[in-house]
Design a protein around this nucleic acid. Sequence first.
DNA 1: GTTACCCATAGACACGGTCTATATCTCCTG
DNA 2: CAGGAGATATAGACCGTGTCTATGGGTAAC
Lengths: 294, 294
Amino acid sequence: MSMGNNYELYKVFYWAAKTGSLSQAAKVLYLTQPSVSHAIKQLEESFGLSLFYRNAKGVELTQEGAVLYSYIEQSQILITLAEEKMAALKNLDSGELRIGGSDSLFKHYLLPYLEQFHEAHPGVKLHLNHGTTPEIMAFLKEGRIDLGVVRMPIVDSQLEVKESFQLQDCFVAGARYADLKDEMLSLERLLQHPIILFSRNSRARMTITELFQSYGYSIKPEIEVGSVDLLIEFARRGLGISYVTREFVSKELEDGSLFEVRLDVPLPPSHVGILTMRNMPVSSAASAFIRLVR
Amino acid sequence: MSMGNNYELYKVFYWAAKTGSLSQAAKVLYLTQPSVSHAIKQLEESFGLSLFYRNAKGVELTQEGAVLYSYIEQSQILITLAEEKMAALKNLDSGELRIGGSDSLFKHYLLPYLEQFHEAHPGVKLHLNHGTTPEIMAFLKEGRIDLGVVRMPIVDSQLEVKESFQLQDCFVAGARYADLKDEMLSLERLLQHPIILFSRNSRARMTITELFQSYGYSIKPEIEVGSVDLLIEFARRGLGISYVTREFVSKELEDGSLFEVRLDVPLPPSHVGILTMRNMPVSSAASAFIRLVR
DNA sequence: GTTACCCATAGACACGGTCTATATCTCCTG
DNA sequence: CAGGAGATATAGACCGTGTCTATGGGTAAC
């Protein structure tokens, strides 16, 4: 008989050797004793070697059987570990979740979800990659992250976009401009004050630039800053009027250190979307996180 | 779906991951592509996890799939090694052969066979355990040797006895007793000369003692020695007449340094038998050796 | 002697692994 | 842009084989 066995036979062999009894092995494997007997016989015939001594008390490995066992034992242990590991991955007791997004979204919006997820699944390692929207999209396509959280709209045939939540950008000012608090400003009037914008090529920056252009104006910031924190801080200190996401300054709006500057034209809401690869399976950790956020 | 897969699926998974293609895996495993596709699907459903990304070029491991692979790869390699090892054992390119026997049998009779066997199967390690017949029998029953080579007769229900070759014990003397060369001695006449016997409780010693008793005589050695080599050496130096196995002194008989002292009664031949455990499989190395000797 | 436990064997059945045929998708090429 | 090549997925049928029950034989222990 030739080599190239059904690997199932090794499982039977493993338990027969481990328990020293074909009957015991049968119990462990939920088989009958004749099935185990037959399986061992198949192995022995395939090798042309005897693997066990049979006696009244059970079976005992022959010299050759002991050699086989030394290999098969390790192999079976690895498979068992693999199955346990897969179960852990499935249950989110293990694994990792790699999310891409902008710094500000992480800090001001996703943080509670991340905390909640980590608390529920402490075994899952979180990897947060921040970057611009195009970078996030590239990371996704390279397989370096499992999902991306970015501002809409996104048009990319390779990506699956789930609209998640809505953010409202707005202009805010501090005490220095308190006289604007009860006013409803036109764009022209707004532009008479110093404007503070985010410096990087963010979607928010592009959106507001386009909006002013559509009304025939050009918005040129007095100050450009590199982080949402600075946008807020500069507005509070009265250096100008900042264009920020309202949800990111809810604390300041509440305690009165900032107030919203109302305009006579509507500012379009911006949507945040969750990106995954289209037609590709989503890891269970990622889908659990998406379920949590939506 | 629950855990506890058919391990055969892991073989399919291994090759699919290794080749990065279900079609290639199918070729390697002599299956069709749909079979492989189906097998992978079963695994994925059993874990509740996706293992591969499918694309137009083939398949690629997901994060979870890569985790599984890290375990399964080792496992499969071990199984492959195990199968190679078993083939080597079967072909006698590997393994060990443990033989029990008396020192003199090893030295004077089995040596050429051992050399021949070692030359034919250099990969098989030889373990030679010497001891008395009862010790050899005990070794066998304890599983410490694969076969024993001892003088017959042996009566033991647990042991399988194969008669192997025949030895003829005889009395030999050196030049000092040259006058006996052409004579045919009676037992009585023999006993007038100093006799040299093996001191240990060997079967040969027992046999000759019984023989003399059956004729009404009692044989009492002038000298007792502890090895066959000394039996020969003492006889050559004229210290007496030694009782030895003729085959062990063939060299000395040929070159004339010893001659056989002929008796007027026949000395019974002694048989050498090969012992193995009854109703227990014999290792392929052992059965190859037995085939060689007989 | 008898019991109780092992393993081996024989024969029947049913499940599932494998096949063929076909569909669908993507990439590449002319 | 159409079409071919090559990848995987799906559907359905069949055959092989792994498993079962029933039974036999052997050994150890009481």
